[in-house]
């Protein structure tokens, strides 16, 4: 029987695996890491991999980590994908935070989708994060750093995990990826050129493509990356850009608008994280982005 998470972690994040293995051998591991990136399940595999390194990397432990049977590794994920981490789930961990490890020298806690935690759940955690009772490693996983409570962010070491693998989810096919990315870029282009067509484009082209939560997350990731590139393309080398093929587009924008306006456009797009939390539909949010961008650029 092979244990998948080991291979997944090694292949998806070779660089980070190496770094963390070094930290473990040098005993320089911090007690709290916030792992940020996409996709969810590969990140979870990476966390499992770290846990496995800490409690003893033999086959028996690997199998027990997968089954959730290891007494010193506690992995908490939302009950059903896409829902929130419940306060009850965090409370159930409380006795684990204050007791000694059973078999290994260090306990490992993995909390998936921490951005979905309610404030009360997060607060009940803060105490244990601040003053760990003993040797512990807490790994928190999130897709979007901005959604994580600042009180947690400030206490954690933040590690960005970015993998190009898309984990074989049925809705993320190669065809979809190509088509959706192209349409996303086109939409950004129309919007930045203040074409009124961009508004209709949301309903006509974007929405039919973005159906699931994962697809939505990918879309926003691309959007954020394009904006990031647009702001900094002339400060960093071309290899460090996410989409070097769009440099022409970035340059044209810089010719038309002042940097100040572009900064405000980027702020406006990032502000969408807040709207998402209050359950405004995707269509309204995207249309708002188009209108606001157009107003900012037109001033």
């Amino acid at each position: 029987m092979t244990v998948e998470f080991i291979e997944n972690a090694r292949q998806s994040y070779p660089k980070q695996v190496g770094q963390f293995l070094n930290l473990i051998t040098e005993e320089k591991l911090s007690h709290l890491y916030l792992l940020v990136g996409f996709p969810q399940d590969l990140k979870l595999d990476f966390a499992r991999f770290l846990a496995w390194q800490i409690v003893g990397n033999d086959h028996r432990n690997a199998q027990r980590i997968v089954d959730g049977d290891h007494p010193d590794v506690h992995i908490v994920t939302p009950m059903t994908p896409g829902t929130a981490l419940k306060v009850a789930q965090i409370r159930a961990l409380t006795p684990e935070f204050v007791t000694r490890a059973t078999e290994s020298s260090r306990k490992v806690f993995v909390l998936d989708a921490v951005e979905t935690m309610t404030t009360s759940a997060a607060n009940s955690l803060l105490k244990f994060i601040e003053e760990p009772a003993g040797p512990q490693l807490i790994l928190m996983l999130t897709n979007n750093l901005n959604d994580v409570l600042p009180t947690i962010q400030s206490r954690a070491q933040i590690v960005h995990l970015q993998s190009e693998q898309h984990s074989g989810l049925p809705e993320i096919t190669n065809d979809w990826l190509q088509q959706a990315q192209g349409i996303t870029f086109k939409w950004v282009e129309l919007m930045m050129q203040r074409q009124i067509e961009a508004f209709a484009y949301v309903q006509a082209k974007l929405l039919p493509l973005i159906e699931t939560v994962t697809q939505q997350q990918l879309f926003f990731r691309w959007l954020h990356e394009v904006i990031r590139d647009m702001m900094i393309y002339d400060y960093i080398s071309t290899e460090d850009l996410k989409y070097p093929k769009l440099v022409g587009f970035y340059k044209s924008l810089r010719r038309s608008y002042t940097i100040d306006k572009l900064v405000r456009v980027s702020d406006n797009i990032l502000a969408d994280d807040k709207l998402r939390k209050v359950n405004i539909s995707l269509q309204s949010r995207l249309e708002k982005i188009v209108l606001d961008t157009s107003i900012i650029l037109g001033e």
Binding site: R60, Q63, R64, D67, D69, H70, P71, T102, E103
Partner: peptide
């Protein structure tokens, strides 16, 4: 039985 926690 391998999956059961080990007593010290």
């Amino acid at each position: 039985i391998q999956n059961y926690p080990q007593l010290p």
